[in-house]
């Protein structure tokens, strides 16, 4: 089974670890420990009759740890940028996280934008329209979740799985025609008459 690397990033205490814990253990701990450095979890999901093994890299959100993150983005198939809908600053940081992704990968990676903590609707500071706007501007997929209630968390990972499969198929299709071209080139070169080649050599053109 193929593994796919997914990198979670976003400001401190927006709920990266909680979203992952909800997905893996279907559990929520209001005080999950702060992630120092990086954490790693993996799970297999089934989408569209295929199984996909996800390697989830959960990174630290404190500004100081941002220098460690590029190496995790480098080999990711997909990046999830999380912010807290009750915290404007975490929404503004999206730009920084995007830059990190683009510096490492250009446009060669799928990006999901996730607004977490929909259970705190009363304290909302970022509207869904803003999220949509931001996502559409950059061509990201977006979703709002609540790790606490479980709202949309399953859907998020289903969508992640589907996107990854799609991308993977595209890649494979891109590699195939190249191979065909190569083989046809080889045939051409093999079809050349060796005598003619010799004649050419003897004629000694410039």
């Amino acid at each position: 089974m193929e593994n796919f690397k997914i990198c979670f990033m976003g400001d401190q205490s927006v709920g990266k670890t909680s979203i992952i814990n909800r997905f893996i253990y279907d559990d929520f701990n209001i005080n999950s420990q702060s992630t120092v450095g990086v954490d790693f979890l993996s799970k297999t999901i089934f989408v569209e009759n295929e199984s996909v093994r996800l390697h989830l890299w959960d990174t630290a959100g404190q500004e100081r740890f941002r220098c460690l993150i590029p190496s995790y983005v480098r080999n990711s198939s997909l990046v999830v940028i999380v912010f807290d809908i009750t915290n404007k600053t975490s929404f503004k940081s999206i730009e920084f996280w995007m830059d990190t992704v683009q510096n490492e990968r250009g446009d060669d990676v799928i990006v999901f934008l996730v607004g977490n903590k929909t259970d705190l609707e009363d304290e909302r500071q970022v509207s869904l329209e803003k999220l949509e706007k931001e996502a559409n501007k950059n061509g990201f997929l977006y979703l709002e979740t609540s790790a606490k209630t479980g709202h949309n968390v399953k859907q998020l990972f289903r969508k992640i799985g589907i996107s990854i499969l799609k991308q993977n198929k595209k890649r494979k299709e891109l590699i195939k025609p190249e191979l065909d071209e190569n083989t046809s080139l080889m045939n051409i070169s093999l079809n050349i008459d060796p005598n003619k080649l010799k004649q050419k050599e003897e004629s000694g053109c410039c």
């Binding site: 420990q33 120092v36 450095g37 990086v38 954490d39 790693f40 460690l68 190496s71």
Partner: peptide, 17 residues
Amino acid sequence: LTSDIYTSRWFLTMFST
């Protein structure tokens, strides 16, 4: 498997996490 994956966590929290 590069060692920075685990050393940051080991060393920065004195193994407490």
